[in-house]
Simulated scan of single mutants.
Amino acid sequence: MSFNPNLKIGVLGGGQLGRMMIQSAIDFNLDIHVIDPDENAPCKNIGTTFQKGSLTDYDTVYAFGKDKELITIEIENVNTKALKQLEAEGKKVYPQPAIIELIQNKLHQKEFYKANGIPTADFTVVNNREDVAKNEASLPFVNKLATGGYDGRGVQVIRKADDLSKAFDAPGFIEDLVDFDKEISVIVARNEKGDIQTFPTVEMVFHPEKNLVEYLFSPAEIDSKVEDEAQALAKDLIQKLEMVGLLAIEMFLTKEGTLLVNEIAPRTHNSGHQSIEGNVTSQFEQHLRAILNWPLGNTENVSPSAMLNVLGEDGYTGEAKYEGMDEVLATSGVHVHLYGKKLTKPFRKMGHITITDTDKERLREKVNFVKAQLKVKA
């Protein structure tokens, strides 16, 4: 596809990922149209047009895509039947609807890994809480819902017999509780021509209760052998999917030095937010380059960087107030991204902060400072 800023691009989802993608699209004067069920979604005021509507209703999604030349997503929970119909009618839909459908189901993801030689934790299919309890001898393990899980929801760690009552009473699977050394992520892009480009591996630290990324460091502190293996695994996975677009791959690095794929997301991802300031090309620009079949951008690190999620404080719900912002803004190398969400609630993603510094120890000190200073209350 040759450079054409007048191409009509439809985006399913108007959250912060879409907002940051549009901020990148503005640089190329791209024509972006967004649909989201929330009339106050973060994308509301920055696209060419914004439409309030369901992402899971066939007729709504089909009607939205009918006059678009290219359709993409910023969230997986969309109606893939409508996207398949649009694809059949000649619309470009990236990532492809069949891949979105596969990734919507965590069990199908696991089965894809197994069938394609992608290393992952061993798993057992379960249909209900009773099935989970039958595997008591295998404790501890992780219970995951096949569908409906997002941002830490749909995942339950079952450590002992007393915890079995917390298991999901719905189809899914249990998998070995991996004794990992680090949780890392690689973001990889592939365009229609089949060109592939990866971002340097990042190291993630998850919130102990909510199972979402609290902060990350780029590049990950891993040896060159593990880095090479993680990069190769990411390229192998996107090739086997034959996917066009951007793919985020979360992996465990075990204490034995083995890599296991945990989960994947066919879109821009929390583990790539630092790329806006930390890399030559951001993940949002790279996503656009991939779906538009443009040359993929240089992904080298400009500087060591960290990303800290700005989460709503526990116990506060209402109009957001940001405590400690003056101290944060006065810190060198700090860049604040707020997502346009007026209302906060416990652990809601209200924004993120990128921190850059050539000295890794100073970088960690700044992360701890920002984490201690900035509080989102109501």
Rank of each mutant, 00 (worst) to 15 (best):
I9E: 01
N270V: 05
V132Q: 04
F112Q: 00
A189K: 06
A133C: 09
L329F: 13
V155Y: 02
A306D: 13
K91P: 07
V142W: 02
E175D: 08
N4K: 15
M251F: 04
Q96D: 13
S138V: 15
V213D: 02
A320H: 03
I174Q: 00
P95M: 04
T201Y: 00
N6W: 11
L288D: 03
N301V: 08
V93E: 00
E242A: 14
S218C: 14
K321C: 06
F168S: 03
E101I: 03
L216K: 00
L70D: 01
V328K: 02
G351Q: 02
P266Y: 04
I238G: 02
F173S: 03
N143K: 07
A161C: 15
E101V: 03
I184M: 12
L30S: 06
I196T: 01
P37K: 10
K81Q: 15
G152P: 02
L177M: 12
D131Y: 05
E365H: 10
G245E: 03
H352P: 06
E300I: 13
I184F: 09
H287E: 05
N127R: 13
G152Q: 07
G333D: 12
T124I: 15
N116A: 11
I22V: 09
S303G: 14
M251W: 02
A133N: 11
A121P: 02
K240E: 05
P304W: 00
S2T: 15
D38W: 14
V188E: 00
I276H: 03
S218Q: 14
L296S: 01
N40Q: 11
L145N: 09
V132I: 13
K342Q: 10
I73P: 00
L107W: 08
K345T: 15
I184G: 01
V280G: 09
N293E: 11
T344L: 01
T120I: 08
N77G: 05
T358K: 15
T356F: 08
K160N: 15
F206G: 07
I249Y: 10
A234R: 09
E250Y: 04
M350G: 01
Y215L: 12
A189G: 10
D195F: 00
I158R: 00
V93T: 11
V34N: 05
L86I: 02
T60S: 11
L374G: 01
T72V: 05
Y150W: 06
D223I: 09
K366F: 01
T60W: 03
T60A: 06
I71C: 07
T258W: 13
D228T: 13
N6A: 11
G340M: 05
G324E: 01
S282E: 01
M1D: 11
F199V: 07
E229T: 12
P219N: 08
F3C: 14
D31M: 13
T358Q: 14
A372G: 13
D31C: 13
